[in-house]
Every structure is written in C-alpha cells, then in structure tokens.
Amino acid sequence: MTLAIFLTLAVISVITALLMVFAKSPVHSVLYLILTFFTIAGQYVLLNAQFLAVVHIIVYAGAIMVLFLFVLMLLNLNKDTEPQKSAGWRLAGAIAAGSLLVTMVGAMHGSIQIAGTEQSNPQVGLVENLGKVLFTDFVVPFEIAGILFLAAMVGAVLVGKKDLKV
C-alpha cells in the first residue's frame, strides 16, 4: 500500500516536472511546478516529516511560486512568444542531462546500505523534535539564516528600484 502511494506520487511528480520543462507558456510551467511541489509534499507526509510537508507547501506553493506568477503577470509574459533553442541545442541538453542521470543512478545503484532498524525513532520529523534540534544544536546557523534573509530582502528592494542614486 505504501509502495503504491510512493509510486503514484513519483510518477505524477516526474510527469508534471517534464510538462513543466516542455510547456510553451511560462504560466503553465508555473502551474505544473506547483503540482510537482504538492507531490513532493506528499512524499514528505509519507516519510512522516509532517512539519516539513506543511512548511514546504507554505514556502513553495504559497510564497515562491506566487512570486513567480506575480513577476510573470507584471512583465506580461503569459503568451507563447518565447523563442525556442535550436534542435541541436535541445538534443545536446537531452544528452547531457541523460548522461548525468545515468552516471548518478549507476554510482548509487546497489551502493547504499541503509536499513531501518527496529528501534528507529518514527517521531523524528515531528515539530517537537525538530524544534528542539533547531534551537539547540543549530541555533547559530538559524540566526545566520535570518541575517541572510534580511540581506536578500534589502538586496531585492535595492535591485528593483527604478532610479538608483548611490
């Protein structure tokens, strides 16, 4: 049953990712990518990482993809006028990505020896445990991430200003 859910989610995510790459209109690409993100959130639920799943939906589907859609609407790019790369470029890209896939799968195949033990803790992805780890072992990276966000916010506002006078 769990394997069936995993395979269904995996197939849907791969198909929507391919549709995202091949969609002519950028708006369709954004919508397909949102579907991919929802299936990845389903994988997180399957892995008993519920907090991660909720944060993933809020951050990606709720914030980042809305930002993408907002920029698309702002620039009025929701038409199919994107010039395509030539067939040679597309073939080269397909060969490069396929080689990468074959290399990664070949390197990983049969070399991973992880078996869950009977005393493994299924509560590891719940918010209580994650919060404890985040605010004890990882409190310094957490604060640095806050500073990074502040810098990114200031940078985005400065870059987007119309006439910048330094």
Binding site: S13, V14, A17, L18, M20, V21, T36, E82, P83, Q84, K85, W89, R90, A92, G93, A94, A96, A97, G98, L100, L101, M104, V105, M108
Partner: peptide, 15 residues
Amino acid sequence: SVLFSIGVFGVLTRR
C-alpha cells in the same frame, strides 16, 4: 536523480 536531471535539462534548453 530523475527530478534533478529534468531540472538540468530545463536549465540547458529553455531560453
């Protein structure tokens, strides 16, 4: 790996 390779393909081929 499949999802990552699809992403690489998109970066290489879209304009």
